[in-house]
Every structure is written in C-alpha cells, then in structure tokens.
Amino acid sequence: MRIEDVDGLRIATFGAGPRMIVAVHGITASLMAWAAVGRRMPDGWSLVAMDLRGRGHSAGLPGPYGLDRHAEDVLRVAEHVGAGPDAVLTGHSMGGYVAALAGARRKFARVVLIDGGLPLPLPPGMDPDEAMTASLGPALARLRQTFPSEEAYLDFFRAHPAFAGFWSAEVEEYVRYDLTGPPGALRSRAVPEAVAADGRWVLLGAARLGEALQAVEAPLHLLRAPRGLLNQDVGMLPDALTVPWLARLPGLKDEVVPDCNHYTILFDERCVATLAERLTSG
C-alpha cells in the first residue's frame, strides 16, 4: 500500500498495475474499508482509495460537505493518479451515491455500485430530521463518544451486530485506522458535522441522484448484500427498492452477493473475491 496526500486528501494505492479502480468509501468509513479488496487485485490492476473530506486522515479538510463536493474530490484524485477512461469507478454505501455523481460527469469504463447508489426515498410523512435520527442516530452518537483505550474501541466494534461472529485482521486494521485523540479519550476520526451534512444530502437528493444514474454512460453494475447494516434480514437495497430502478435503467446489471451484510461484503474472503473479480472483469 502506497500512501500520499492530494490537496489534503489522503489516498492509498493497492497494487501496481496500469488498469485502475477508483474506490469511494461509506459515510463514516475510511479508505481502509477497501484494503481487503485492494490487496486482492490481480496482475495488471491497481486500486486507489481515498479518505473523503471529514473522514480518516482527510478529516481536517473543511466543508462545505455534501456529495457534490465529494464527487469533485474523487474526480480530482482520479486525474491526479492518471485514471483515464479505461478506469473503473466504484463506491460502497454512500460512496455508491458519490460514484453515481462522479460517473455522470466524466467517462469511466464501468461504474460498480456496492450496496449503495440507488436513491432512498423519505418514508411517507417523515421529515428529513426524523429520517436522519432513525438512520444515522446511532452512528452520530458513536462519533461523539470517547473511549478509554484502543481495546475498548475494538470491543465496541466486536459487539456490533454486523461484526459479531465475524472478525478478521483486516476488520481490526480498519477499526484501528479510524481511531484518534489523546490517551483516555480516544474517538473516531470522522467529523460528526460532515456525516450529518452528507446524510441529509442523501435524503434530500433522491431526484438528483436519479438524474445522475440516468446520465452515467458507462455500464452500471450493482452488487447488493442480502443483509443490512445491523445484520438484519432485509438489506439496505431490498428488491422492492431495486426492481423499479432496474426498469428505469435497463443497462443496470443487478447481483446479490450471497451470505453477507452491508459491511462484511467488503471483508469476508469469499465476498471480497467476488468483488475483485467483478471489478476487474470486462
């Protein structure tokens, strides 16, 4: 893994091949969410991941936040690393929405959305603040919480429903990378204000995201997890949400990756092998 900074954005490159994948992480995540996939790049490929502003080692970059700003950052990184029109663009969770916006602005060989990217309509009768509390309340609470030690932070994630019963060295590396602060008061690197602003953008930007998806000229591939953020039986993108978009986007290829949840799709060895193959095939 090679690390560098681009205008304050921390980026990491896995592999050394000329064919490139530009990868975007989720709303409270970091570039290390892509490490397991990046380390399994076949010969001839490299994967470039970045810490979005307000996250990881890009946490010090100022706002305004929002998915348009992230899309601009992604395209700037793509230009910096020389990712041409034969590059693949991918994003997980919120990163899928950012990838849709960036993919609508310039040519990529393919755009691969991983358990994200399809607009999430507001529930009937619910205002954005209520929806934010329902969807991001626990995450925002974690970002404002402090922990007495690294081990306490690791224990917090070991007990998370998505990781309970599933733990690996790469999950632990991902969690440790997110940790900052003085001894006895450790916390996540993610900036709560950035997460809240981006979450609100997703909830209010459904129409914009739909327009972006329809404007993407590259082939679109959606990879879905059958289980959700808390390992519940209903995934983030259930059939009821996905099927209408398959009708609106006839070129969209839809695939469910078996036996994973919203997080383990990026860490489980079998799922990672599937993702690496889909990202580099075609």
Rank of each mutant, 00 (worst) to 15 (best):
R2Q: 12
D5Y: 15
A16K: 10
I21Q: 08
H25K: 11
I27A: 09
W45Q: 08
L47S: 02
G54Q: 02
G56F: 07
A71K: 00
D73M: 06
V74Q: 09
V88M: 09
G91K: 05
H92C: 05
S93W: 14
G96Q: 00
L101G: 13
F108G: 13
A109G: 12
D115S: 14
D115R: 07
G116V: 01
L118N: 13
L120K: 08
L122N: 04
P124I: 06
E130N: 05
M132N: 10
R142L: 14
F147L: 06
A152Y: 12
L154Q: 03
F157R: 03
H160M: 08
F163W: 13
G165C: 00
E170K: 07
V171C: 02
V171L: 11
V171W: 07
Y177M: 00
D178Y: 12
P182G: 12
G184H: 07
R187W: 14
A190H: 10
V191T: 03
A196R: 14
D198K: 01
D198E: 10
G199F: 04
R200H: 13
A207K: 07
L209D: 08
G210H: 06
A215P: 13
E217R: 15
L222C: 11
L222I: 02
R224T: 13
R227V: 01
L229A: 13
D239G: 15
R248V: 05
P250T: 01
L252T: 04
E255V: 06
N261G: 02
H262T: 03
Y263R: 14
I265R: 15
I265G: 11
C271G: 12
L275A: 03
